[in-house]
Structures are given as structure tokens and as C-alpha cells.
Design a protein around this nucleic acid. Sequence first.
DNA 1: ATAAATGGAATGACTATTCATTTCTGTCTG
DNA 2: CAGACAGAAATGAATAGTCATTCCATTTAT
Lengths: 190, 190
Amino acid sequence: MSKTDKRELILHAALELIAENGFHGAPMSTIAETAGVAAGTIYRYFENKDDLIREIYSSLEDTIWSAIKEHYPEGCPIRERFLHISQSLIGYLLAFPMEFRFIEQFQNSPYGVDCRREKFFGKKDKDIVTELFEEGQQQQIIKDLPLPILSALFFGPLVDACRDHILKFINLDDDLIARIIEANWDAIRR
Amino acid sequence: MSKTDKRELILHAALELIAENGFHGAPMSTIAETAGVAAGTIYRYFENKDDLIREIYSSLEDTIWSAIKEHYPEGCPIRERFLHISQSLIGYLLAFPMEFRFIEQFQNSPYGVDCRREKFFGKKDKDIVTELFEEGQQQQIIKDLPLPILSALFFGPLVDACRDHILKFINLDDDLIARIIEANWDAIRR
DNA sequence: ATAAATGGAATGACTATTCATTTCTGTCTG
DNA sequence: CAGACAGAAATGAATAGTCATTCCATTTAT
């Protein structure tokens, strides 16, 4: 087993345990056991638990952002770009529920307090959405509300709906997804 | 000092510490110290930490529902009732930021998931919001979406906006509040 | 053989909860 | 009315458990 494999096993075990049980249901001993590795071994790959957790989060953030950026219809009409972002975000969250749960755990913990408002977007990521909103406002397509409010109207319900789906409170099929995105559009469009 | 006073001191200390530092920044020893009480004393009033936390949450929930139900325009048009609920909820959250932060901590923890699950699967009598949505759908005023989705569209952005205000990212004045509620109405109305 | 990697018991810090003891409070008695 | 007394309330040191992290003997790879 290569060095990289073992590192991946640890990352995966930690992601899975934290997603399912929260940070406090994922002691290092259990992460080690799940990864098929001894407790001490984790510390050859990660400085400490914080480091391990941040490593997972930052790689997830990159992945999600690439997923959204892929085939992004740069230069196309506002609505088309809005649809693309909505669909690829939902697509990712539903395809990777464990990753989604992890991100939520992270955001709602001391680790994530600083970037709470930006949800899945760091500085560079925010630009594309900010850009979309500002351009939409200039074209009188999108309501003239502060950007954080537009973000709340846009992302809040999408994320909530995905969580409800993953927790089996509802079943999100393609039709329902389309109607949610439409309702979201109604909220932000003029 | 009366028995009730001491119980209140403990509840208040726990609310404050948990709101500010999260559940894990609020050990029983610190709660006791903040309340000006010995650690063991807490256990004369609460079975354990879980019990204490749930007690705080459920009393907050009661308070919020009473605040919303006060002057509720029962029997008036859907939109009027929608406006009342939105306004009184925002009013409460902004007036009691510490309580708001506690509720957020609670909701985004294993406690909150259990609580939502109970509410979703075990609820018999409909709450005021469910009633509003169902009646609105019958009258073809509100979109025909599952109730959890309508809730997400309704509450998600309101709560996010209040958080942004409390964290000083935006300033919610009466005009902005009115426009947010309007955008929310656009999301759920047909 | 040598160095790197690994295992897992040991360590020390921290926590919720308990319980033997003390303090308080109001009642009864002579 | 003083003082004894019972039971409730409060205390906080002790307990039992958990967890992240370290250490070094052993194994594995080169």
C-alpha cells in the first residue's frame, strides 16, 4: 500500500465519520479504526485533527467550485447562467451527500464561523455570483437588493431542499428541482 | 434567593454561553460559575446537560410562537397573515440576538435534526404556517410545492438576513425588511 | 543494514456527573 | 423566646470516562 493510499484512506474515513456523526462522533481512534490504520499513523500525515479537518474542507470547496465552473455559460444571458449555477450546485450536493453533510457540519462549527455567509464560496468563488447579480441588476432583470440578501434568497432554499432530501423528508426528483429553481428565480428577478 | 431564581440563573448562563461559544465552549463547570452556583447544584434543577439544553430550546420555541400568534389576523386573507408572520418573526430575532444565536446552534446540531425529524414525522395538529400554506394552495394563491420546500423558501432567507444583520454584514431597516418579505412572497406565490 | 513507516499502549488534559458533607430554613418544644 | 432539630438545598472535591496526542518498540521497505 502506497503512502498516498493510506493518506486517502484516512481522509475518506474522517469525511465519512464526521458527515454521519459530527465532529464529536468522530474521535481519532475511530477514524483510525475505520481507515484500517493505527491512531498514531494519522499523525504522520496530518499535524493534528484540525489540520485533517481543514484539509478535507478545503479540497471539497475546490471540487465544488470546479463542478460549478465546468461548462459555465460565460457571457450568456443572466437567466441561463442562473440556471447553470443552480443545477450544478444541486447536482453536486445530491450526488455527494456525504460531502454535503460534512460541509454543513464544518460551516456550523467554530471552524466555519468566518466563512459562514459565503456558504460554499471563497473569495474567488464569490466573484462569479456577485458578477451575475450585479450584471442582472444593471440590466434591470434582478431586484435591487443588497448582495447578501440576494445570496440568501438564492442559496438558502436550495441548500435546505437538498438537506431535506438527504434526510429523507422529501424526495427531490428532476421535476421538483426545476420548480424549486423557478421559485428561486421568482424571488430574485424583478 | 428563591428556588426559581436559581433555576433561571442557570438557564440564562447556559443560554448565554452556548449562544456565544457553542455547546462545546460551555462546559457545565463554566455554566455553574457564570450562574454563580456550584456544579452539583445544576443537577438539582436539570437531569443532565441534554435536559438543560432542551429545556432552553423548548421555552424559546414557545416564546417565539406566542410572539407570532399575538395579534395574528386569524381569518384574514393569506397575504395579510403571511406578512404578519414574517414581520413578527423578524422582529423577535432582531430584538433577541442571543436567543437567535442559541436557536441556530441548536438547529445545526444533532439535537436539531432529531427535533426536525420528530416534527416532520410525528406532527398531528398543524401549526399556523402549515395551515397558511395549505389554505393558500387551495385558493390557488400559493405555489403547489411540498410544504418543506415552501418552508425553506419562506424561512431560509428571513433567517439568513437576520444573521447577516446581527453579524453586521448588512443593516436591516424597515424598508429593506419590507423588500425582503416582498421577494419572499414572490418566491412562494403563484 | 539502515532508515522510514507503523502500531498501539501510555499520557495528560478535560468533562459530565455523583455524593458525602455542609449550610440554610422553618418548625416544634419546653 | 431560645434552642434543638429535621429536611431541603447547595457545595465542590472525587469519580469515571473520553479524547487528542505522544512515544518508542517493532515491522517494513530500500
